[in-house]
Each structure stands twice: as C-alpha cells, then as structure tokens.
C-alpha cells in the first residue's frame, strides 16, 4: 500500500470522525428550539454538547488541512468549485459558533431566542449541505482538463444531490435525538426518545431512496455489480437495527448502531470514489485521483509521521473529555451560563 492510499484512508477516517461527532452536534442544534420548551430546557440541551462542539468541529478543519497538504489539487478544485455552497456553509458555521458563546451571556429572552434560532439555522444548513456535497462528489462534476470546475452553483442542486442532502439532514437529526436520550433526564429525555422514534422511519426511507438513486445516477454502486459488498450492507443493517433498539428502549445500542450507520455510509461513498477524489462528468480521464492530485512522497511521508503520533493523542484526550462530562444533565444540574 502506498502513501497516497494511506492518506486517502486517513482523510476518510477524519470525515468519519467529523460526521460521527459533529453529526450529533448538528442534530442537537436542529432539535434545540423544538425540544427546548423553556429556557432551562434549552440550556440543558446546549450543555449536552457545550464542552464538546468546538473540539468536534476541529475534525473538519483537520480534514480540510489534510486534503490541502496531501491532495492540493483536490483541495483547490473542490473548494473553488463548491464556491457558493461553501460560502453558505461558512456563514452557518460562523453564526453557530458565535451563538453558542453569546446566547447565555444576556438574560433578555428575545436575545436568547434569536441566538437559539441561529443555532438551528447554523446546524441545519451544514447538515443538509454535507449530503449535497458528498452526492455531487460521487455523481461527478463538470471538470476540465486543467482540473478546473466549469459548472455553477445550480449544477450542485440536482435532484440526486437534494435527496442526499435530505438524507444527511435526517440522519444527523436522528443521531442528535439519540444522543440526547443518553445525556438528559425526565421530560427532556422523554421528548428526545419520542422524537428519535418518530425520526427513524423517514430517515431510513430516505437513506434507502438515496442508495437506490445511487444505482441510477452514479457508477459507485454499479461498480460493485449485483453484490454491493459488505460495507453498504452493514450500513443498512445498522440503520434497521436502530429502529429495533429504539423500540425496545436500548438507546445506548441505538447510538452505537447510528455511529456504525454513519461510519459505513461514509466508507461506502469514499470507497466508491476510490481511487478518484473528484469525478469529472465532462471526461472520465480528467477526474482527479489520489495520484494526479497528490503532494510529493516526501510531504506525504512527513505528514504520515505527524499523523501517526498526534491522531492517537487527540483521540485519547477527546475521549477523556467525554468521560469527564459523562453524567446526564438535568434541570437541577449546575448549568454553565
């Protein structure tokens, strides 16, 4: 296995980490105005992700940095190609980050309500856009022989990508609801449970629809032939089992299975791309691959050593923070304002 493949795998791992962790952050943010019936409930809900959301977001920055360092042409083509979509995502990320810090620093209820809805918007927009982006990546984009994106913003809004967006939106929202069932108590816990059960069926249906649609719109699953391989099947079995575990009130298991759904869906998409990183719909020969888009072996080698040392350290201390804040949060908890 060469360094290019290792770095493709590492980028996939960073996205899995990001979607798994930030996925429930987005979900919690989306559900905040609906499950938080009063200010106290909203503070409880924010506190479930309060110590973590910022660290979770760094997974995206690291993934972005890793793409830049390991596959500069991928970074250049994708970021300049998804221009307006990324701008929208950045606006959402900015206002969301600010809202978490600002909302409780003033007692005025209008002030807090405004920031809470900004948290909703700032979580909902990226949750949707990630699915749109991934769907477009595997569907292919107009890219010319100089690795330059030649489409516009509305090329990205095709029906297939929109189904992908709805799927990621629903999956992250469900993920957030299940996360809340593990972190809250009493009335908030009950409404989180009910929400998770309600969200499961539409999430599963849209995910299935996306898989079927992928057969038609992309070469990703067609590449597998009749046997799609074990990875997408695990993802589908996992989302089915989430429904079962929610029904029998085993939320811990539901959360684990949700994690597996997200991880294996991400792997399915990235393994469908492999060895390409951006598919050119103009001419298959103009696609960006892990070889023609990559950095030199020297750079990949340096980055491998750095990643080998520091990724495990990050995993250890981030896991530790979840251990420190492992207790459920109730209305009676000492809340951070």
């Amino acid at each position: 296995m060469d360094l290019n493949i290792i770095w493709f795998i590492l980028v996939t791992v960073l996205f899995i980490g990001f979607f798994f962790l930030e996925g429930f952050d987005y979900g919690v943010g989306i559900l905040l105005p609906f499950l938080g019936k009063d200010d106290k409930a909203r503070r409880v809900i924010i506190n479930t992700i309060g110590p973590h959301w910022d660290g979770n977001e760094v997974w995206l920055l690291t993934a972005g940095g890793a793409i830049f360092a390991a596959f500069p042409h991928w970074y250049a083509t994708m970021f300049s190609g998804f221009y307006l979509a990324l701008f929208l995502m950045l606006v959402a990320i900015i206002v969301r980050a600010v809202s978490f810090e600002f909302r409780s620093k003033d007692e005025n209820s209008k002030w807090r309500n405004t920031w809470d809805w900004i948290i909703f918007f700032g979580s909902a927009v990226p949750a949707l856009l990630w699915g749109v982006a991934l769907a477009n990546l595997i569907r292919g984009l107009p890219i010319d022989e100089t690795m330059t994106y030649t489409g516009g913003f509305f090329n990205l809004l095709n029906p297939y990508a929109i189904v992908g967006g709805v799927a990621s939106f629903l999956l992250f929202t469900l993920h957030g609801a299940i996360f809340l069932t593990l972190k809250t108590t009493d009335d908030i816990l009950e409404s989180a449970k009910a929400t998770a059960r309600k969200l499961w069926l539409p999430s599963t249906i849209v995910l299935l629809l996306f898989v079927v649609y992928s057969y038609i719109e992309t070469d990703v699953i067609a590449g597998f032939g009749i046997n799609p391989g074990v990875v997408p099947i695990v993802a589908l079995l996992a989302i089915l089992s989430v429904g079962y575990f929610l029904k029998v009130k085993r939320e811990g298991w539901a959360f684990i299975m949700m994690g597996i759904t997200i991880a294996f869906s991400t792997i399915s998409i990235f393994s469908g791309l492999f060895p390409r990183v951006m598919v050119s719909s103009t001419n298959p020969d103009w696609s960006l691959t892990i070889y023609n888009a990559s950095s030199s072996d020297y750079t990949l080698g340096v980055m491998s050593i750095v990643a080998l040392i520091f990724v495990p350290i990050v995993l250890i201390y981030q896991s530790w923070t979840y251990w420190v804040f492992r207790k459920r949060i109730s209305r009676k908890s000492e809340l951070e304002y």
Partner: peptide, 16 residues
C-alpha cells in the same frame, strides 16, 4: 496548487 505540497502541511499540523 502551486504551493500545497508545502503550505498545506503547516495548516494541517496547526489543526491537528
């Protein structure tokens, strides 16, 4: 594209 081989490295390490 011109400088990613070099410039991307400190950016990635900065995040990590």
């Amino acid at each position: 594209r011109f400088v990613g081989d070099i410039f991307g490295v400190p950016l990635a390490i900065e995040a990590l």
